[in-house]
């Protein structure tokens, strides 16, 4: 990896509680994800995957260490950025296990919403949302409500929403858990393509062994520490 990392964690630790009841969820985690890289994060339940994702998403403050996103220092003993929601809007795209599309908006409006929240005019946002859905081959389902979408279609719409503001970082939480093997592989190929084309850093939390071969690197966590880092495709 030669380019500057878009996600950089240095000595990140997270502790819940104090004294004898303190639980160390993360200890001295170091991780760097560069542009165009798709990194998997695996580990048994309670290993700290979700905590790490929450820390990178800036919805949970670490107890120690340093965090930089897209080259900007975000945490160093305290948050160095005041508006964390703006940071998430503009720099991070999220993909969820159950897609989390708003059930009362059409597929197109779900994608457009992310852009209107970032200040784009509605008409322009809808136009761009349609283009994104076309690009991800679900353009014909743009007017469908989420409940009418298949699992694969909903995941593509969710990916389109994550890409809406062209964020440099994409965080995905078990994105293939609700998909069958074939659709899971298709979704991961899509994420790989997006990462390459947009030079985005993609970090995926997963238990799904059938997609392990789709990552550039696989990071294994155990008891809050990075146990192993395996380079899948050199």
């Amino acid at each position: 990896m030669t380019a500057a990392p878009l996600v950089l964690l240095e000595g990140i630790a997270k502790q819940f509680g104090t004294g004898e009841t303190a639980v160390r969820a993360l200890s001295d985690v170091n991780l760097a994800v560069g542009p165009g890289e798709v990194v998997g994060l695996k580990g048994p339940s309670g290993s700290g995957k979700s905590t790490l994702l929450n820390v990178i998403a800036c919805i949970m403050a670490p107890s120690a260490g340093r965090l930089s996103l897209a080259g900007e220092p975000i945490w160093d003993e305290r948050y160095l950025v005041r508006d964390l929601r703006r940071l998430r809007r503009e720099r991070i795209g999220f993909i969820f296990q159950f897609h989390n599309l708003l059930p009362f908006l059409t597929a197109r409006d779900n994608v457009a919403l992310a852009m209107t929240l970032a200040g784009q005019p509605r008409a322009q946002a809808r136009q761009r949302a349609q283009a994104l859905l076309e690009e991800l081959e679900v353009g014909r389902r743009a007017d469908a409500m989420p409940a009418r979408l298949s699992g694969g279609e909903a995941q593509r719409v969710a990916i389109a929403r994550a890409l809406a503001n062209a964020p440099p970082i994409i965080l995905a939480d078990e994105p293939t858990a609700a998909l069958d093997s074939e659709r899971a592989r298709v979704a991961m190929d899509l994420l790989r393509r997006v990462a390459r084309e947009r030079a985005a850093a993609v970090l995926v939390v997963t238990h799904d062994e059938k997609i392990f071969d789709r990552f550039d690197r696989m990071v294994a966590l155990r008891d809050g520490r990075v146990e192993a880092e395996v380079l899948r495709s050199a």
Binding site: I59, R85, R88, F96, N100, L102, P103, L117
Partner: peptide
Amino acid sequence: EIATLKLIGAP
């Protein structure tokens, strides 16, 4: 839905 809105940056 509200948690999702907050996560994707809704003020």
